[in-house]
């Protein structure tokens, strides 16, 4: 569904991402793990058209590298950005409606999808009219995910959904990701928290210093020493 081939991104003379190739098949949950500064977010921003990159990125067989961010969203890729990035001075409801910005859906369809999101996150239903900026980090993360789901994406990209959240909240967020997966959505999950990421993913890639250092199915990754030592703390 998504195929990245030999992606290079540099900031000035610094190469942030080198020769990254990865693919995500339909219905899969793929995780990209790595520590701070490994190039995870850079890779994502390149996919979403936020920064220029070299190499090829294709989605459903169509080349998307070089397209503007909003054109890529229109094709059915929704992103939950790092740090949540909800619109602080818009209400929860308006944030969700922004998620459906590119859709030409009828009122009933939108209502149906909103109901689905409110079932997934009952907390958001209670806070419909509240400014997003006044909510807790966990609630904002729920909103960011709900907002992305309102786009009815074919591919959902999550950038560090666990960042800055208490462990109990992280657990809740990952339970939701499990539910979304069960609904059949294709997910690319970027995480530092490898333990959580591997709990939901089918396959995983490891990124270090801008390069892919390992790639395998989750069962196999769990057995690998390097993954155990570096990421799972065993």
């Amino acid at each position: 569904m998504l195929k990245i081939d030999q992606l290079h991104v540099s900031y000035g003379s610094i190469q942030a991402v080198r020769n990254v190739s990865l693919h995500v098949d339909e219905g899969e949950v793929v995780t990209l793990i790595g520590s701070n500064g490994a190039g995870k977010t850079t890779t994502l921003q390149a996919i979403c058209g936020l920064i220029p990159s070299k190499g090829s990125i294709s989605y459903q067989g169509e080349k998307i590298s070089g397209l503007a961010a909003h054109r890529i969203v229109e094709k059915g890729i929704a992103m939950v950005p790092e740090g949540r990035r909800v619109f602080p001075k818009l209400s929860v409801m308006q944030n969700l409606m922004m998620g459906s910005y590119t859709r030409k859906a009828s009122k009933q369809e939108l209502k149906h999808d909103l109901d689905m999101i409110f079932t997934l996150f009952p907390r958001l239903a209670e806070r419909k009219e509240q400014f997003a900026g006044t909510m807790s980090g966990g609630e904002q993360q729920m909103l960011a995910i709900g907002r992305a789901l309102m786009a009815k994406p074919k591919l959902l990209i999550l950038d560090e959904p666990s960042m800055g959240l208490a462990p109990i909240v992280v657990k809740g967020i990952f339970e939701t990701i499990h539910q979304i997966k069960a609904n059949g959505l294709t997910i690319l999950l970027i995480e530092q928290n490898a333990m959580m990421a591997l709990s939901v993913a089918d396959r995983g890639y490891g990124l270090e210093h801008g390069e892919i250092v390992f790639h395998d199915t989750v069962e196999n990754l769990r057995k690998q020493d390097i993954v155990k030592k570096a990421y799972l703390g065993k």
Binding site: L50, A68, P81, M97, R147
Partner: peptide
Amino acid sequence: TKMGIAIQATAQDMRAASLMGVNV
């Protein structure tokens, strides 16, 4: 209006707005 809310969203976070599919 949708465009009006998009203007507010862009003012609050231009990058996030473009990730919603807003043509900034």
